[in-house]
């Protein structure tokens, strides 16, 4: 039990605008929402920050709604709210599948999509979905709003293009043509971090995104090009296995990850073939 009078302070913004001003005015202020990653890092001593900005009460970041041609998902949308949202179920069912794979119920009730993006783990369960859906990240700051394609959002392992004064406001997902597919291979059936996670879309130009096989979530353009060009799935699998660069770690080995990525590609192709029931 930690009983000390805390050295940590929590700043409560009055509004989103206030929150953005606070981010502008104070370097080192760390935004928090569901805290499912942050508490672990704090307890572990991996996070040195002492001042935090509580985004959790900002209702306007919790919105999930169609906005013209895109589906807007606020950064504070929890996994539970993604699972329950009729709009997400209809337009982006692979995100529902991904949200179901995150942690247990408690984590699904607290963890947010924005947090998953900001945390930037290469094993983040929702990230391949956003990459395959060609989503756009909406970033806000005191000076305005900008949009970054999700596939250009990460610069490397847990590093992003975000400026220090910016917050993730949400995600815009365009209409996804074609059949969506998602699969996570974890170390157990639930409450696990993935060995390999894949989201894919079966369309004239198929899109395939993978997690846990590179420093960031990745799309595999060569593999996609091969599939677009009519290559057999076996050929595409060979290309995929050379296109990704997994590592050995406690959860799996590079060789196994490469093998399983190939297996997943085959299953994606088989299970989304014309005539198969939509899942």
């Amino acid at each position: 039990m930690r009983t000390a009078i805390s050295r940590l302070s929590l700043v409560e913004p009055r509004s989103l605008r206030h929150a953005l001003r606070l981010m502008r005015d104070e370097a080192g202020l760390v935004p928090l929402a569901g805290c499912t990653d942050l508490y672990v890092a704090l307890n572990d001593g991996a996070l040195r920050a002492t001042r935090f900005l509580n985004l959790w009460p900002i209702e306007e970041l919790r919105v999930i709604e169609p906005r013209g041609p895109v589906l807007f998902i606020g950064a504070l949308a929890t996994y539970s709210s993604l699972i329950r949202s009729a709009d997400v179920r209809r337009r982006l069912p692979m995100l529902v599948s991904a949200a179901r794979e995150v942690g247990g119920r408690q984590v699904q009730n607290r963890g947010t999509l924005g947090g998953n993006i900001a945390n930037g783990s290469p094993a983040g369960d929702t990230l391949p979905v956003l990459a395959a859906a060609e989503a756009t990240v909406v970033l806000g700051s005191a000076t305005g709003t900008r949009r970054v394609p999700f596939t250009a959002f990460y610069k490397g392992y847990r590093t992003t293009v975000m400026r220090a004064d910016e917050l993730i406001l949400g995600i815009e997902v365009p209409e996804v043509e074609g059949r969506q597919w998602f699969c996570k291979v974890g170390t157990r059936g639930a409450q696990a971090i993935s060995k390999v996670v894949m989201a894919a879309v079966r369309a004239p130009h198929p899109r395939v995104a993978l997690g846990s096989v590179a420093p960031t979530v990745v799309r595999v353009p060569k593999t996609e090009a091969a599939l677009t060009g009519g290559a057999s799935v076996d050929e595409a699998r060979t290309i995929l296995m050379s296109e990704i660069a997994p590592i050995d770690d406690i959860r799996s080995t590079a060789a196994y990850r490469r093998h399983v990525a190939g297996v997943l590609l085959g299953r994606f192709w088989e299970q989304t073939a014309a005539g198969r029931p939509v899942y």
């Binding site: 157990r188 059936g189 639930a190 696990a192 406690i250 959860r251």
Partner: peptide, 16 residues
């Protein structure tokens, strides 16, 4: 130790 936590040291969940 290779993974001194209940995330990395895996015991089955109800679904496993």
């Amino acid at each position: 130790h290779a993974g001194p936590s209940l995330l990395d040291y895996r015991i089955p969940t109800t679904v496993d």
